[in-house]
Structure formats: structure tokens, C-alpha cells
Nucleic acid binder design. Structure first.
Lengths: 158, 158
DNA sequence: GTTCCAAACGAAACAAACTTGCATTTCAAG
DNA sequence: CTTGAAATGCAAGTTTGTTTCGTTTGGAAC
């Protein structure tokens, strides 16, 4: 990846705020971190250009848009041949219900975070994604009873 | 939670856009969904008030702010007594490095997503969080080699 | 079918926020 | 002490967000 010019205390303070609320006016941010609004704006722009800020998005409550069920899936594959792994990555990533997908070490090869409306939908998904895939050896399902903490926030403290 | 007035096609279209980029001007959104800017603005405000939109945040690249390692942890507890579970939830949620925490059914009780700078940091974290906690029976670690798909996006299509 | 009401809409005026230009400051290197 | 690159703050200019207001739409009651 591109080199990341190291962040100073201002950048980190700004990032900490933006990760909680990126609708906050730059003037307000400026007051919070002791900088003028244009200075804040230039720093944000730079961090967006360098990819430190990957995106600006709205977080929606899954339950309120008809996806009350969150499920973790550990997937174990038959073969770890590179092209098969890549195919699996692309296949998982292409599914909207697969919110997150990680290729991991340990007793599983992939871990997926899935969001669905009903268990019937999940069952249908497993059929499409796992049973219909020769390279999937087995998978284990964990249904979330409580989403204790969710988000994508990364600590930036010093 | 509060009842969610069902969303129409406009709301869903707006949500789909905002989940990808909430910095997009309301005028542009309006053109995309065939609505005036004020109409878009009113719908967004309503969805924020009803909690459909939980937050507006910036997504930062963990690697570029010094947290190149993402780890999944399955935690199994000794006792599932309600107050102990609640204590565990609060304990995990309070840790900045614990980016996500779910209370789940299945062969584990909790699944955590952890982000750290080094494996030494993770080792220190396990000591604080698991070994020092009498109620943690065992835990299993999965280190992410590839963050194939990340985010909090929820499908809103119809 | 008509009336009525509530909800949502768009156009335009208005307010707030973002963005740019520019002179100044800062700070490290020479 | 001087210099130059980088960052800053102020103020003007531009874009975007927000409110107002009159109109339209879609039902429900009659």
C-alpha cells in the first residue's frame, strides 16, 4: 500500500472524532482540537487522499431494515490452492448478506459475518454458499443473541 | 426498540447510497432517486430520528493508523449466570481494541473482533481479558491474513 | 362521486458549511 | 541569522444544507 505519512496529534484527534460522527461541522472539530476550520478541512482531505480515511458512510440498524439476525460462520475448505482460495474470496465477497469476510489462520479458513431476515434465509444461503461448493469441507454456525458492540472504529490514541 | 415505520422504495434507495457514501450532496442523491433535495433531507432526518440510521462515521484503514493486525476470538465462559454474562459484556465492550463483540449461541459464548498493533499487544490483551478473568474457561484465536470484505453495510434491496 | 384531512412534495429564499486565495507564521536546515 | 518548505488563520467566494410556503397526492368518511 501507499506509505502513510505519520499522523500527528491533530490528525489523530480529528480521526477520533470523525469515527464517531463525520457530520460534525469542521468549525466544531476545529474548536475541539484547537485548529481553524480550513486547517481541519485540509487535514481531512489529505487523509482521504492517502486512504487513511477509507470511506464516509451511514451506519444503519439491521433490525430496523428487516435483517434482525446476525450470524458468524467458520468455514473450512478442502484445498488451499491459491486459485481456489481466491475464488472463494470472490464468491463470498459478492454476496450482499455477507457483511464481512476474513481469511484466517487457525482451526478455520474463513470467518464470515452474515446478516439475514430469517433463519430460512440463512438456510437457503448455506445451501448456495456451502453445500453447493465442492471446496467447502465444513462450516460452523454461531447465531448472535446480542450485538454487544458493533462498528469499525479503530483506536487512534497515543 | 421503537417501531420502525416501514420504508418505501425511496428510503431504501437513499439508505443504499448513504451506506456507501454519506458525503454525497443531497441534491445528487435527489437526482439519483428522483426526488427534490428537501424531500431527501426530510427522509434522512426522519431515519436518523427513528434510529434507522444509527450514526454517520468515517471508516479508517487500521493498517495506516498502526493497527495492522485483526484477530477473531471465540470465548467460552464457565458460568452463564446472567450477572456474570452482563459483566463480561461490559468488560469486553469497554476495551478500545475490541472493535466488535457478540454474544452468541453455539460452541462459543462470545465472539470478539480485535484490532492491535503487534502480536505482543494481543498477548498482553489476552492476559488482561482472559487469563485474569475467572469466568473465562477457554478461548480460541484466529488471526486474519486477509480482510476480504469489511464494513457494516446491510442489504436494503427489495 | 365528493369532501376533507393529513402527509409529502417542489420551488425558492435563506442560513450554514465548505473551499480557496493569500499573507503570515513556524521551524528546521544551512 | 537567513532561507525555504509546510502549515496556519483570515476573509472572500462558492457550494450545500435547511426552512418556508403554497400545491399536490392519497385515502377515509360520507
Amino acid at each position: 500500500m501507499s506509505i502513510s505519512p505519520d499522523l500527528d496529534a491533530f490528525d489523530r484527534a480529528i480521526l477520533a472524532l470523525l469515527q464517531k460522527d463525520n457530520a460534525m461541522p469542521q468549525r466544531t472539530i476545529g474548536e475541539a482540537v484547537n485548529l481553524s476550520a480550513p486547517a481541519v478541512q485540509r487535514r481531512i482531505k489529505r487523509m482521504e487522499e492517502t486512504g487513511i480515511i477509507r470511506a464516509n458512510v451511514a451506519l444503519v440498524d439491521p433490525a430496523k431494515v428487516g435483517h434482525p439476525i446476525t450470524i458468524f460462520v467458520e468455514v473450512e475448505v478442502e484445498s488451499e490452492r491459491a486459485e481456489l482460495i481466491d475464488a472463494a474470496k470472490r464468491g463470498f465477497a459478492a454476496v450482499p448478506e455477507v457483511q464481512q469476510c476474513y481469511y484466517v489462520t487457525g482451526e478455520a479458513d474463513f470467518i464470515l459475518v452474515v446478516t439475514v431476515a430469517t433463519m430460512a434465509d440463512y438456510e437457503a444461503l448455506t445451501r448456495r454458499l456451502f453445500f453447493a461448493n465442492n471446496n467447502v469441507k465444513r462450516f460452523r454456525t454461531f447465531v448472535a443473541m446480542d450485538r454487544v458492540k458493533v462498528g469499525m472504529e479503530v483506536p487512534v490514541g497515543r
